[in-house]
Amino acid sequence: MTIEFKDVIIQTICRLLTPPIQLYALYVIAHGHYSPGGGFQGGCILGASFILMVIAYDIGEVKRRMAEKMNTIFCSLGVIIYSGIGAICLILGANYLDYGILHKILPVNPVRARALGTLGIEIGVGIAVMAVMISIFLNIASGGEHEGALE
């Protein structure tokens, strides 16, 4: 049974609430290393804001804002940021993901370098989780066809 579900109240509220939700996701990512939260949780909230748009509008609207090509690029960009920071530590002569060694290339002391390295990792994880969440949801919701409204 297909139900036409276009509701002006839900669409307006979802459009108004999406930017605060995304801002809150960035807050969770940025505060991940000294309060509850982190890359995975923030990425999940970012992905959930796009899923809210899919539910309120349709899949085409979200694909216009976040194309499948960009989504795939983000997906691998997050992994590259994560493993790239780890590999830089490896190149500089420490263990994999041992951020303290980053003070050799950053103009800060080792403690600060460790905090910055963690922030970089969190950003990479957040981007990857957001892209994978959107990709999984679009593929499951549309049966792999990536078009039409939700039924």
Partner: peptide, 21 residues
């Protein structure tokens, strides 16, 4: 404020989908 905006909207969505079904 978030709950003040989101809770009536979700109630509206559930009720409308119930009416449509």
């Amino acid at each position: 404020i978030f709950i003040f905006v989101a809770n009536p909207t979700s109630t509206h969505a559930i009720t409308k989908s119930g009416l449509d079904c």
